[in-house]
Design a protein around this nucleic acid. Structure first.
Lengths: 372, 372
DNA sequence: CTGAAAGCGCTTACAG
DNA sequence: CTGAAAGCGCTTACAG
């Protein structure tokens, strides 16, 4: 069973390659009857056009590149599910570039671009320099960032609303009566962590509480450091010690809880801990973690939608380009408008790691800086 | 900056397309000096051959397909890291097919095969029917299964040695003095779970302990069911109750621990729990989980190696086919030898969720079936 | 060692 | 509505 070509199908159905190609491309100018006939032949012989030939002739692949950091993150997995959900009903396939963080991905980008292997790029990354992507985008390749915001690059993106999420987390704690609330930070180079920290600070302030610098600790997403910093927190005199901690990620929260338990503190009786992410195990650990859920699957979907739209716009443009010869300007215009930035709402998932402020500790004072 | 073609490079370097193509393909018959020259031009202009054109002309893409279940599993993430590590230095890219479990992937396979989009297939899946893959493989497409063993399909595969892993887990428990050891099973349709269960049974028997059917519970990887079954276990009279449980996955172990704690039992003082997988959070939960580590990254690497080897063999074969016209028979022979099955060793990761059998319970009897 | 030519399997104006 | 022809950007015998 040698692979069938369009020529075979043409012969088999007594028509020309052109006609077969037209039905393949849903051209309206083909007679309904012959179209049915051709389709039948195609189906009967299980013919699928050569991917490479189609790509070459059309000048565009139906592939979208997806650059991800090492897949170890729950996030990436969920995002991919969302992306796959939309691409799978569009005929696009996704080609995966795993950018190990220690590798410079400049060359990778070059290859992606110039080999014209993909017609668009989805980028999930925190670590990588974004400039090459901006360049790419300016050269006309659709690019969208998912859950990645480098400073203020001019690229479309979809993220969770980290600021609002932090606010929500803090409100939960505040409503439980907590006032001395610590913040265990993630990597502050990440925009998402900066936003979470801003939320932390603002929530405190609008509750009339002056943030205590002593209560902000750099955890950097490394478990050992988080534990060490937590120990400092929990070693404070009982009346200075935070009664709650807002952790910048679930895994960070785990480490905080471990440290708490090692310090002989119970969660949530002695100290409340709230996370961020809502990874799979958050419901499974003891106590089940109260956390802010990021809508990764949804984010993946929206990002894919955005990208597909851009790709289609690109195609349209390419079509009109011949008719309309001032395309150079069109091009420039297409790129410059402010990129869309989608910010998806998070949700508070209440489980058991946060409780009311310990009675002996409540009403101690109005400010975090109040000392005994 | 319109995209450069090989024709441009040829012009730019004052040579023919043929020659440029030869240097692109590392042909030895090109003069070293001209090769250097061409390479310089290529580099200077940042030329990358068109992916589609190359694929069409060569009749093979440098793409390997990877079919994965929804990426929600830690496993897939790690496997992918291994795969990426090997593909990234071979010029192969990987195209990702996310097979949502509720979708029949027959059509997907068809498309992959006939569009000749990928030159090989890596499959990570537990749920999907394997027959289409066997067919594919027989038609000459390299396929390797990672961590997937349907019954005894004739496909190359790499898995963890689940049986040996279970033995190791059980030995650890046995050495701690446990004798009434429960087994919280995963999905018994999966070969991996069957192997783990066989290991459980055999370990018990070779320790001279008769397995007690009461102590085997179907958990099916669903948290609520696991908790319910665990409750049954922990509700047993103190001297019948298991002192340890072997869980078929880490997440299963989490649920068991939750149930234990809800039943007022401490881990590991009152009951030891051992998991399987070693997912990221296993070190973070309380108590840190003792578990069997599956070498996913390594498995990904080996699988990729296997696949690449098969792809290359395929290419060679294609080259010789013209010279040697009885290729039909060759083909058949190439497929029939027993597929290689790699079984990778697991490791015991000792953390804190397993301890010695409670003193009041030790030496109660030699057999699990002993009742008070 | 290098070049001219045919071909990979499609698509797309252009005729008819 | 359908077909003949040129072209997409490479590779690969085949000459020289």
């Amino acid at each position: 069973m040698a692979k069938l070509t369009i020529r075979d199908i043409a012969a088999l159905s007594g028509l020309s390659k052109s006609t077969v190609s037209l039905v393949l491309n849903n051209s309206p100018k083909v007679d309904p009857a012959t179209r049915r006939h051709v389709l039948a032949v195609i189906r009967r012989h299980n013919y699928v056009p050569s991917f490479a030939a189609t790509a070459l002739a059309k000048g565009s692949t139906r592939l979208i590149g997806m650059i991800v950091p090492g897949l170890s993150w729950h996030m990436v997995a969920s995002i991919n599910i969302g992306v796959a959900a939309v691409t799978e009903r569009t005929g696009f396939d996704i080609i995966l570039y795993t950018a190990t963080n220690d590798r410079d991905y400049g060359p990778l980008i070059d290859r992606i671009l110039t080999s014209s292997m993909s017609s668009g790029l989805l980028v999930v990354s925190h670590e990588q320099p974004l400039e090459p992507l901006v360049q790419l985008h300016q050269d006309g390749m659709p690019v969208v960032l998912v859950n990645t915001i480098g400073s203020e690059v001019a690229l479309p993106s979809v993220t969770a609303d980290n600021y609002e999420g932090a606010l929500t987390a803090m409100d939960h704690l505040l409503q439980l009566g907590h006032e001395r609330i610590a913040c265990m930070q993630g990597r502050m180079e990440y925009r998402c962590c900066q936003d979470r920290y801003r939320g932390y600070l603002d929530a405190l302030r609008s509750a009339g509480i002056q943030p205590d610098p002593e209560l902000t600790k750099p955890g950097d997403f490394v478990p050992d450091q988080i534990k060490a910093r937590s120990r400092e927190l929990f070693a404070m005199p009982a009346d200075e010690r935070p009664t709650a901690v807002f952790a910048h990620s679930d895994v960070t929260a785990y480490a905080v809880m471990t440290a708490a338990s090692e310090a002989g503190l119970r969660v949530p009786e002695d100290v409340s801990v709230i996370g961020f992410d809502d990874i799979e195990s958050a419901a499974q650990i003891r106590p089940p973690l109260t956390t802010i859920q990021q809508p990764f699957v949804e984010m993946g979907k929206r990002a894919a939608d955005l990208l597909l739209t851009a790709i289609r716009a690109n195609d349209e443009n390419a079509n009109h380009e011949n008719a309309n010869e001032n395309s150079g300007e069109l091009n420039r215009e297409r790129v410059s408008p402010d990129p869309v930035r989608l910010s998806m709402p998070t949700s508070l998932i209440v489980r058991a790691s946060c409780g009311p402020v310990p009675v002996t500790r409540s009403r101690r004072g109005r400010s975090q800086t109040t000392k005994a």
